[in-house]
Amino acid sequence: MATIREELQAAVKKLFDDDKIDYFVGYAEDYGHTFPAILTKDSDPSRLTFDRKSYDNLANFLPELRGSRVGLICKQCEVRTLNVLAAEEQVERDKLVVVGVPCPAMLDPRKLTEGAADLDSLDESYWQEKCRRCLERNTPLADVFVGERVSTPTPAEGWPLLEEVEKMSAEERLAWWRRQMSLCIRCYACRLACPLCYCHQCFVEDNKPQWIDKSVAPENNLHYHIIRAVHLAGRCIECQECSRVCPVGIPVDVLNNVLSRDFAERFGYVSGETAETQPALTRYERDDKEDFIL
């Protein structure tokens, strides 16, 4: 039986041979890491892979390749991202070839210790938090599906870290955020790894007017993170890439989780849930709760 890796490589080769795509965005494996790779028809697909360290949200590369015909591996995270990007008219769905995969749940790199033996057998305690909440492990929307379909466990309820933070008193919580923000180095990797932070000009880079001071200080750092979170209100699809890439381990996504939970509880809204889902802040229903305004 062909492995998922072989099936994937064959599928990609066929897409290029049939002249269906100009670029393929997938994962390659080398020097002990799995990382995103962009291929053209002249590229060698033999190191394309899909494993439990295929962390990156590949939809992040789509705005850059806009206008080209692109094939990409989509996990649930990419699918929800695509739905948001399409609703916001940032991608042209008919130019995309979605390669579906059975997602085995991604591992949390912070929980992996050196030389962890068999990655395939690691249980839930090694998963990324988002994978416990996954709605569908087999890519919906797939134009091509590689590998054997898997069953999706019942999505876990709750937001463990957010709930922990909310248990704190207001003073404790402020102190906790101050500590986290004192670690931030403002590399903006959280923003750049975010597939929905695609603005050509971000408010942090404006200097006329300068919305935010460039010096690295807890209050400036918090200012940046709060505004970014608000810009993602009703859009964030909880892929947690912002937290994964943070070099100093700030759980950036906790801020986004507050808003995601509010949208879920108040409006029964899950961003990017289906291809028909419209952005929350651009639609109106007569029975929307307005208790926080009126």
Partner: peptide, 29 residues
Amino acid sequence: CPVKINIKELVEYFGGLKDTPPGGARHGK
């Protein structure tokens, strides 16, 4: 690196110390 670009491998490849690029994704083979 969020996307695990490997500077050592790239120096070796573009500097002519090895033939295979990282990830094997060679252009114009």
